[in-house]
Computed example of a mutant assay.
Amino acid sequence: MVLNMIYPYLTLNDGTEYTHSEMKADGTILVYVETPDAEDGFHSLLCVLPKYEIKDVIGYTKDEQEKILARIKKNAHLIIKYSQRGAK
């Protein structure tokens, strides 16, 4: 099992956090998003770049998923850049 390093990218005022993995050998990057929720604990999802594939959704509505995906697409060039750097 290969473990990925996860790096913080963005925290919104509502506590939503965006983190990302290092770029894998196949060019994919895992973007994790989670938002604290008083009832459920956390809502979360995984987006796999560069295909923008949404997976493992817990608690987010379709509308919320679309907004998250739009933010990821808007920031993808930076996420890709930072994922190649690692902790440098």
Rank of each mutant, 00 (worst) to 15 (best):
V2F: 05
L3F: 12
N4Q: 11
N4F: 11
N4T: 01
M5W: 12
M5C: 08
I6Q: 07
I6T: 14
I6F: 08
I6L: 13
P8T: 05
P8L: 05
Y9F: 15
Y9K: 03
L10V: 13
L12Q: 11
L12I: 03
N13C: 01
N13L: 09
D14G: 07
D14R: 07
D14P: 00
G15L: 01
G15M: 01
T16H: 04
E17M: 09
E17W: 02
Y18I: 00
T19K: 12
T19H: 06
T19R: 12
H20I: 03
H20M: 11
S21C: 03
M23I: 12
K24T: 09
K24M: 08
K24H: 15
K24N: 10
A25N: 12
A25F: 01
D26H: 03
D26K: 09
D26P: 08
G27P: 02
G27W: 02
G27C: 09
T28G: 00
T28Y: 11
I29L: 07
L30F: 13
L30W: 14
V31F: 08
V31Q: 03
V31N: 03
V33D: 00
V33F: 04
E34T: 00
E34D: 01
E34Y: 07
P36T: 07
P36S: 07
D37P: 06
D37R: 06
D37I: 06
A38G: 04
A38N: 13
D40Y: 14
G41N: 04
F42T: 12
F42P: 02
H43D: 15
H43T: 02
S44C: 05
L46G: 03
L46D: 13
C47G: 05
L49G: 13
P50T: 06
P50Y: 01
K51W: 14
K51P: 00
K51N: 15
K51M: 13
K51Q: 15
Y52T: 04
E53L: 15
E53Y: 02
I54K: 06
I54W: 06
I54V: 15
I54D: 02
I54H: 00
K55Q: 12
K55D: 02
D56F: 09
D56P: 08
D56W: 09
V57A: 08
V57I: 15
I58H: 10
I58F: 09
I58K: 10
G59S: 02
G59W: 10
G59L: 08
G59T: 01
Y60V: 00
Y60G: 04
Y60Q: 08
K62W: 10
K62T: 14
K62Q: 11
D63R: 12
D63P: 00
Q65V: 11
E66P: 08
K67H: 12
K67V: 07
K67S: 12
K67E: 15
K67R: 09
L69K: 10
A70T: 03
A70F: 02
A70N: 14
A70W: 04
K73T: 04
K74N: 10
K74G: 10
N75Q: 07
A76E: 15
H77E: 14
H77Y: 07
L78M: 15
I79W: 01
I80M: 09
I80F: 11
I80N: 04
K81C: 05
Y82C: 11
S83R: 04
Q84Y: 00
G86T: 03
A87E: 13
A87Q: 03
A87N: 14
K88V: 11
K88F: 09
